[in-house]
């Protein structure tokens, strides 16, 4: 896939920059969960990796063209005897400004295998139209 290279480069660069700015902790809280935004026809498709979070712990809000996703990933009790802890946990909130207005009535969200997919349809007035020369 052609955009694999973009993904790879971006991730590598992000990791490098993040490591420079804030040394990575056990939690690596800098950007959790990470988002990917795609476009298909007149739809925006937002995907985010939220492994281990149940449906009821995720809240999605849409105000104008700002989408916010918040929730909490439950942690094991503190008494647990950890040998290694790399997975992020705890409460999170992310907001993203969408490139155009979307129809709030036509938002679909789906959580499958730890990937949250939100489909947002462009609002009628934001759709482009062709103008014919009279």
């Amino acid at each position: 896939m052609f955009f694999n290279d973009i993904f790879n480069l971006q991730r590598d660069l992000d990791q490098f920059l993040n490591a420079q700015i804030s040394p990575t902790s056990v939690y690596q809280t800098n950007r959790f969960p990470a988002l990917n935004l795609f476009e298909k026809d007149n739809c925006l498709i937002l995907k985010t990796e939220v492994p281990g979070i149940v449906k009821s712990d995720i809240k999605i809000d849409l105000t104008d063209n700002v989408l916010s996703i918040s929730g909490e990933k439950k942690t094991e009790p503190v008494s647990a005897n950890y040998h290694r802890q790399e997975r992020e946990a705890g409460p999170f909130k992310r907001q993203i400004e969408l490139p155009y207005k979307v129809d709030p009535e036509k938002v679909k969200a789906n959580l499958e295998n730890g990937v949250l997919t939100i489909e947002l349809e462009k609002r009628e007035e934001a759709k482009g139209r062709q103008i014919t020369i009279s």
Partner: peptide, 9 residues
Amino acid sequence: LKPLYTEYG
């Protein structure tokens, strides 16, 4: 899908 903004690979 056409990627617009990507954070994870």
